[in-house]
């Protein structure tokens, strides 16, 4: 490379890209796989709808009032969580902790409601996972959702602990934000489950 008459071309300046961070992309990717997972369970539920020879049918077994209550809890928890995040962003630590605790509480109420519902189904309606196709698909779908709620509650509890020790602040809010995404996702799945399982049960099929 001897010096030539023409100067070497100079590259254009680097433009820094903006977009989700690696951690955020990671959560998005994870949630995408969760969408695929729940879609499969929902497809299985729908595929077996009304194919049962032995009862109880969804219509006979499921009752709406309780589940409407728990649904409201879960949806409410999403709203409360949103408020908690806002609080964190504006630096109101105490109200963050309070709202976050409320989110967890609502999640726990939801789980308690599910537990109560299942007890009734098993003891009174004699619906078990091996009873019929409805039982099989219902417990699998609702069970995996509840498992995700449980996971969410536990993660939120860890965040709460950290927050109480003063380790959660505006500057490291991404973690809180990602937990929030997960929780909103679990909520969204529940809306679909609610429609596919409970609403159709009462409206007599799809």
């Amino acid at each position: 490379m001897s010096a030539t008459a023409t100067p070497l071309p100079a590259p254009p300046p680097i433009v820094t890209e903006r977009g989700p961070s690696a951690a955020q992309w990671g959560m998005i990717a994870f949630l995408l796989s969760e969408v695929a997972f729940f879609s499969t369970l929902i497809v299985a539920y729908v595929a077996f709808m009304g194919k049962d020879i032995v009862g109880p049918t969804p219509q006979e077994a499921l009752s709406l009032p309780l589940v409407i209550g728990t649904t409201l809890c879960l949806l409410g928890s999403s709203a409360v969580m949103h408020a908690a995040e806002r609080a964190l962003h504006s630096g109101r630590q105490t109200s963050f902790c309070l709202l976050w605790t409320l989110t967890i509480a609502l999640g726990i109420i939801f789980l308690a409601g599910t537990a109560y519902e299942w007890r009734e189904l098993i003891v009174e309606k004699h619906l078990t996972i091996s009873r019929n196709l409805f039982g099989t698909t219902y417990y699998t779908l609702v069970g995996f959702h509840a498992l995700h709620v449980t996971g969410g509650v536990m993660t939120m509890a860890i965040v709460l602990l950290l927050a109480l020790r003063g380790q959660v602040s505006r500057s490291n809010a991404t973690g809180v934000q990602l937990v929030g995404w997960y929780w909103h996702f679990v909520d969204a799945v529940w809306i679909v489950v609610f429609v596919v399982v409970y609403v159709t049960a009462k409206s007599g099929g799809l």
């Binding site: 690696a22 992309w25 990671g26 990717a29 796989s33």
Partner: peptide, 9 residues
């Protein structure tokens, strides 16, 4: 998940 996060972020 790791690949997506690494490559995109």
């Amino acid at each position: 998940v790791n690949f997506v996060a690494t490559i995109l972020g």
